[in-house]
Amino acid sequence: MSTSRSRPKKTDRIIYRRPLSLVDRPTHFCPGCGHGTAHKLIAEVLDTLKIREKTIGVAPVGCAVMAYYYLNCDISEAAHGRTPAVATGIKRCLPDRIVFSYQGDGDLAAIGMAETIHAANRGENITVVFVNNSVYGMTGGQMAPTTLNGQKTATSPCGRDSRSMGTPIRICELLNTLDSPWHIERVALDGPAGIRKARKALLTAFKGQMEGKGYSLIEILSPCPIHMRLTPRDAVRFIKEGMIPAFPLGVFRKEGKPVT
C-alpha cells in the first residue's frame, strides 16, 4: 500500500501505524468485529518483544482460523477445540519458541474445555488468547457457552434460558481454581482504554512465556456486531453494559498466585 510505509520527516513522530507483524491485507472480518483488534494487538506485542521470527501460533476452527492470512508468523490450524493440545505438542518439541493459541468461545469453552483445563493444569508454557464474543460467529450466531442469560441467538431464539441451557461459563474464574497457571486476566475491547489494557495484558502474557513463567490466558471480551444483532457501536455498548457485569474484568492470577 502506497501510504502505509512512507518514511516520516525528521520532525515527525509516529503515534500509531500498522505493526510489521500484521500482514498488509484487509481482513475478512465483518465491520466492527473484535477479531481484527485482537489480531492487531497480538501483532503489536510480537513487534514490541521482537519475537515474530520465533513465534508459532495455533488457530482452530471458527472465525479465528484464518489468522495465517493476517499474522506474519508461522501458524498451524487445529481441529475444533484441540488448540491447546496442538500448542502443547509444538511447545514441548520447541521449548525455546513462543507458542500461542488463538481461540473463540465455542472452541475454548465448549468443544475444547477438556484441552483448555488440562493444558492450564499442566502449566504449559504457552499463551492462550481467548476471544469471548458470546456467540459462534463463523457458523452463524449460535449459542455459545458464554452467551448471556436471555441473549437471543440462532439456537436460543427466545433467549438463553438458564433452566435448560445453563448460564455463561466464566473461564478465568474456573481456571483460577487450578494451582498451575501463571497469569489469568480478563480484558474488554469496550473502548480505547480497554484496548490499551488488553495490549498490556497480552504483553505481560507473552513476556512471561519468554521468561519461562508458564501458562497464561488472556480473555478478551470482544464485539461480534452481526451475531449480537447490533451496530458496531451498540456492540461495544453491549460489552460494557451486558458482558462486563457477567464477566468481571481484572487480573485473576498474577505471578502464579490468585489475586484476591
Partner: peptide, 24 residues
C-alpha cells in the same frame, strides 16, 4: 524426550499433530 499422558485419546493425537508440525 517428551512424554505426556494426555487428557484423552483426542488430545493425544492432537498433541502428536502439534509435535510433528515442528518437524520432530
Amino acid at each position: 524426550r517428551v512424554f505426556i499422558q494426555a487428557e484423552s485419546e483426542v488430545a493425544a493425537i492432537n498433541m502428536v499433530f502439534g509435535a510433528v508440525v515442528t518437524g520432530k
